[in-house]
Write a protein that binds this DNA or RNA. Structure first.
Lengths: 235, 235
DNA sequence: CGCCTAGTTGACGTGCTTCAACGGTCGTGG
DNA sequence: CCACGACCGTTGAAGCACGTCAACTAGGCG
């Protein structure tokens, strides 16, 4: 998850030798263990992260202690929502994660003169925007089973699994995380999975590996209408 | 609402005289009447629009005929979700709208050499990303009254109304549009407004002008917890 | 003056949240 | 190697907020 502030990106403080060193060595590898935070809300944002492998969740804490998950980030995604030099939300590794750490000062200095970097940034932002809009669409659906279906589709797409393949989907996050992303309770998450299993649409192994075993049933569950009153329709 | 494809943006077809003319005159004013479409899903996307005045809704049609509203766009927002040269969604003027029409060919040609344009694009994309994430957050809340409250806050912010001011909020969209944005039925929209009025948090005039008359009550309604089991009566 | 759309109000059913207890899994330490 | 504990997940029960359907009222425009 990435956001870039609209501030001018003042590079005037690039005169210290430490900053020059960071510029010369613009990025470095970092590693996070499962459950480890990449950063927390309000911390000074010295760098963005480009995920090499693993899965990261970005989230905000609600006043009542619950958390809203903004996005799950995978390989090649950028993580680090920044505004006014501070992180807007928190990020945590859901699996072991390796990432490039890209200091903000290096980015700010380079962005002016590097068209490739700019293009890459624009592409990434476009991608993130699509993600966010897809997330909003997911959240706009009423039925829990629909949200879970769209969530699975998202995971599928992120794993490069061809649509219609029967490959297993890796699901590293726990039920409560899925709930916090899909806007439903963790119980509803479990029950929705169970319903999909009972209908023969998916199979679950190990609680972290799902497989869509009947695509037609799966899609039918997603697009299923609600109160319906059995719309023979007409009139 | 804006999205830019990741495609290379081939400018090789800039050799026709018509395209050269468009480049020389990169943008032109256009006007839309209330209810008029800016474009529809699937149409070839020849241009983006930069709103000068008025309000635009971007939406997608669902298989069952319902519509999901992606974003409401106001002055200075960009409109025109494009991928592979085609519009991904539809856009419609909610009020009389004036806008700059910026041909894609001109943008593609200029973007490579114009750092200011790039910077502007990055800023706009960041802004849109924030909007989309705020929308997702709104949709993740359970109670209808909360979604309506956050929606009103969004309108407030877009009209430059200082937080805490008692100024009237202009609300050009109809109940069904608000519902399609907030993921609730149009009846629930109306009832939520009514509840806020009854509680003395807001006042409504003319069905299109709302005023927050008691900020504390308004915020309380937004953050109100759910099941609660009414704390007092233990157990 | 009458039609058409937008908005309101009411009644009813239901799918979700919440609360609660149980079961399964994994990591840790004896 | 097994036992324990903490966390994750499942299952069950009850209440309620919202969706749906329906009928009515209010505005807007010819």
């Amino acid at each position: 998850m990435m956001t870039v502030s609209t501030e001018p990106g003042d590079a005037s403080h690039l005169s210290t030798s430490r900053d020059r060193a960071e510029l010369a060595l613009p990025s470095s590898f970092v590693r996070f263990r499962k459950g480890e935070p990449l950063y927390r809300t309000g911390e000074g944002a010295e760098a963005l992260f480009s995920i090499v492998s693993g899965v990261v969740k970005s989230y905000t804490m609600l006043p009542d202690g619950a958390q809203h998950i903004i996005v799950f980030s995978f390989a090649d995604d950028l993580v680090g929502s920044v505004q006014n030099g501070t992180h807007l939300n928190s990020a945590e590794a859901l699996t072991a994660v390796t990432a490039y750490r890209m200091p903000m000062v290096a980015i700010n200095a380079q962005i002016r003169s590097d068209p490739d970097l700019q293009f890459h940034l624009i592409s990434q932002l476009s991608h993130e925007l699509h993600q966010a809009q897809a997330h909003a669409f997911l959240l706009s659906r009423q039925r829990a089973i629909t949200r879970i279906g769209l969530f699975l589709r998202m995971l599928e797409a992120h794993q490069g699994t061809a649509r219609g393949s029967l490959q297993e989907i890796y699901m590293p996050m726990k039920r409560s995380d899925i709930g916090a992303y899909a806007g439903i309770s963790l119980e509803a998450v479990g029950r929705s999975f169970q319903t999909l299993v009972n209908r023969g649409a998916i199979a679950i192994r190990d609680r972290r590996y799902v497989q869509i075993i009947n695509r037609a049933l799966f899609e039918a569950a997603i697009f299923e209408k609600k109160g319906g009153h059995s719309g023979a329709a007409g009139r």
